[in-house]
Structures are given as C-alpha cells and as structure tokens.
C-alpha cells in the first residue's frame, strides 16, 4: 500500500519491490492515495466569526448539501420518525472537514457506508462549509489545532492506546478490517493527521466517538504520531504484504513460494536438450 511513498524515499527501496508489486497485484487492493502530502490545512483555526466565510459556506451548503440535509441542515425524518438523513446542527466544523475533506461527502450513492472519493471542493470551500455548520451550533467540535497534528508525540504510548482503542477495528498496523453487513474500518495508512483526529472526535458513521475526556488531545497526538511513525518506517523485514496478517502470508507461501518451487521441480525433471 505504501509502496509509492517508499519509492519517493529512494534510500529504503528494495530492488525487489517492483517484482513484488506485480506478484501481489491481486492481494493489494488499490491505494494510490499515499501520494497526498500531509500539508496542514490553512483554515484550521476555525474563524467562525468570519461572517463572510459563513455566508459563502451557506451558499455552498444550499447548492450541494441541502438536498439531503435540508435547507436548515436539520436532516430529514421519515414518516416513522426515523432519521434518514442526519442533522448537521452540532456536528461541528471537524465533522464537515472530515467528511468533505476526505471526499466522503457529498455522497454519491447510498451503500453500507460512505466511501472515500476524490475531494469535490477546494480547501477554501471546505473551510467555508465548515464555518457555516459551526455557526449553526458553536458547541460542535472544531478543526483541531495544528499542535496536536505534528506527529511528534510519544509513539510508545500512542501504540498502546492504538492497540486498546483502535486496533480491533483498524488492525494492529492500521491496515483496516471488516465490520458487519458490508461496513468496514478503513486502512489508516496515508490518511492525513487532521482527518484522523477529526474522526476520533466526531465518530463518523459507525465509528464511536472518542471525546477529549476519553482520549485527551495529547493521547490523540500520541496515536497519530504512532500511525505516522509506522508510515515513515517501512517494515524491517522487507515488503509488507499489505500488513493483513497470516492469511495473506499463507496464500503467498502457497502461490508464490510453492508455485516457484514446483516450476523448479518441472525444470529439474525435464529432459535436457
């Protein structure tokens, strides 16, 4: 998954990596998103008072989001009182920045869960949308301060917190995992620090919320630092096989290792010219 980034790192690249990619094409499912740079968002300091930005956000909202979330952003309730489209009042700028900033919103089609897509808006537009939603209820979580996103926290503590709070869904190496009925916890490799932080405080879709009372901002910084550390430091043992664990290793042993040896036995037993 993180191969593209590794190539940029030149010094750590294995000559075998290219061969490995071809061999593992079936196992590795997509993932060029690592190319995205981790530049910190310029509008992160949530200037909700900036009325011009709010007005601009409202215009964008009415044009792109209101069809589902309603003109006043209160969502939509069906005849049985069931919320079919969620209200955005109180979700905060952080939720908007996460959902729109990762391309999950605007949604294309309904499915088990909203998928990551190409981002539809510019950074400025996202900031405007976020400012507008924040203005609806100023108590909502805001876009995190850059000091929590620097990746310079305690990786050891972060690793431990990650394993207790996150690994059961996202896998110990952040490679992702399955949930019920077609839902899944996404791969965290290559996800911007800001989005990881926002996911924790807003609990998008089926992810639980990790409020600051549960994991303090400093805890979150540690977790992010751990994930970024894993990204920056490729496995000591060589190519990672997508970090999916023993199943992929087993398939590799059967198909690649045993397959190669069977080809060699054929050469060995074939009559020479």
């Amino acid at each position: 998954m993180s191969l593209f980034r590794r190539n940029v790192n030149g010094a750590r690249r294995h000559p075998m990596a290219a061969v490995a990619v071809i061999a593992l094409g079936l196992i590795v499912s997509g993932g060029g998103y690592a190319a995205a740079s981790a530049a910190v968002h310029p509008a992160s300091s949530a200037t909700a008072a900036d009325t011009q930005l709010v007005a601009e956000g409202k215009k964008l909202f009415l044009g792109n989001c209101a069809s589902c979330h309603g003109k006043n952003a209160a969502g939509e309730v069906d005849a049985n009182g069931k919320q079919v489209f969620p209200t955005l009042i109180g979700v905060g700028a952080a939720a908007v920045d996460f959902q729109v900033g990762t391309g999950r919103m605007p949604a294309q089609a309904s499915g088990p869960q909203m998928m990551k897509k190409t981002v539809q808006f510019t950074d400025h537009q996202i900031a405007a949308l976020a400012a507008y939603v924040q203005s609806l209820d100023p108590t909502g979580p805001t876009v995190p301060d850059a000091k929590w996103l620097d990746g310079k926290g305690d990786t050891s503590r972060g690793g431990e917190l990650f394993r207790v709070n996150c690994a059961m869904c996202h896998n110990a190496a952040g490679a992702g995992g399955a949930l019920t009925e077609g839902k899944f916890a996404p791969n965290l490799s290559g996800v911007k620090a800001r989005h990881i932080y926002e996911a924790m405080i807003t609990g998008p879709q089926n992810m639980p919320v990790f409020s600051d009372k549960n994991l303090s901002p400093s805890d979150k910084r540690d977790i992010i630092s751990y994930l970024k550390y894993l990204e920056k430091n490729p496995s000591s043992g060589g190519y990672e096989l997508a970090n999916l664990g023993p199943v992929v290793e087993g398939l590799f042993a059967w198909i690649i290792a045993l397959g190669l040896l069977v080809l060699i036995t054929m050469w060995l037993a074939a009559k020479s010219n």
Binding site: M168, G177, L179, K183, A185, N206, M207
Partner: peptide, 16 residues
C-alpha cells in the same frame, strides 16, 4: 476473544 468492535449506528458489537 475480546469483543470490542462497537458500531455506533447499529449498536452492534462484533468479535473480530
């Protein structure tokens, strides 16, 4: 195994 996968929307707990 530790059953710890909680889905906020469905309120389901899944064992990995």
């Amino acid at each position: 195994c530790p059953v710890a996968l909680f889905e906020q929307d469905t309120h389901h707990l899944l064992c990995p």
